[in-house]
Design a protein around this nucleic acid. Structure first.
Lengths: 104, 104, 104, 104
DNA sequence: AACGTTGAAATAGTTC
DNA sequence: GAACTATTTCAACGTT
């Protein structure tokens, strides 16, 4: 059975208050971030490039394990075949998945 | 146009650090919020409804009225409504509630 | 455990091709849908309300009733509702949507 | 002013019908895709790996120009500095041990 | 069948 | 106000 049968009212209020408080804090921080960007812009920095830089760094940080897990699975998918030149197929389809990515 | 000189390096470093620190804080809070929802769920609350409740509280009464009036209008036009529906709710929403009765 | 022999290669190729073809079709349709919305917007319709209308029509009456009853309950518990709200709508909605068109 | 003042009713119906028709088609295709996966599974393929393979191919296809644009911007961001060893900073910084969720 | 996980869709916010 | 990006929401999937 679901809550708010009567007693749970206080619980609900508590939940709502906590969440709204946290969201308020989050919004403040978002404001702070915007201010930093604005200040940077005032100092002559290219905000768009700055945002990209930050996002690239974030991805670079998170992506490593992602990539590794992905590669594992990818190899696994290839391994579903015996040992045939299927890798060729996967690789040679539309372009070369040979990493030419100039990793930062 | 762009910054020149060694100072720019320090400035950039500072900007990046500040932003990443703030984003880290923001992510923490987001995690906290998710935890509150999870806890609420564990206590039998309907998370989806909870989210909707929070969002309803966030938008102010006027906007809400407009949004619901528009939906109401469209539903009428589609013949999905016979009498009056949401419209009632939207219209009766101006004053602050202090006493409720009847209903479910 | 896994497929063995050259056949697996052809099978995999076939699977991949079929899926990618289907996903391409799906993407096309998604594009079409977006276009319809864009056109509607160009004709003065409120896209957000339109989307909500579509989604309301999609979920069946029972579910809708439950969802709105739950929200109603929470709103009551939070003292956000005085008289009657969405509940009315939900209650008066028993039959399938798709019937009468006159009415109103 | 927004639509559905009276005349627009037919327009609205037309829009809704078109969208719902397209969404129905989309849903059908999604069903087809699921069937292909199910069939593949029946033939001994690892569905999860298969999904990953498909997604990798999709990304590999789309990402090239993305990556290039990104790299441009990244270099641009770096170029905000004269020619200093800031690249070093950006590069040598990525070892931030902030991991959530361990991958399976 | 509930749970968390993941990927896609939608909304909100930002920039030009 | 249109396009792009980021955040948030929602639905599907395997897992237990």
């Amino acid at each position: 059975m679901n809550k708010t049968g009567g007693v749970a009212q206080d619980q609900l209020r508590s939940i709502v208050e906590r969440i709204e408080r946290l969201e308020e804090e989050k919004a403040e921080i978002a404001r702070d971030i915007r201010e930093v960007y604005a200040e940077a812009k005032g100092n002559g920095f290219d905000v768009k490039a700055l945002r990209k830089l930050i996002s690239v760094r974030k991805i670079d940080a998170n992506e490593r394990k992602e990539q590794e897990a992905m590669l594992d699975l990818y190899m696994h998918a290839m391994g579903m075949l015996d040992g045939t030149p299927l890798g060729e197929y996967a690789k040679g389809q539309d372009s070369q998945p040979e990493q030419e990515q100039a990793a930062a």
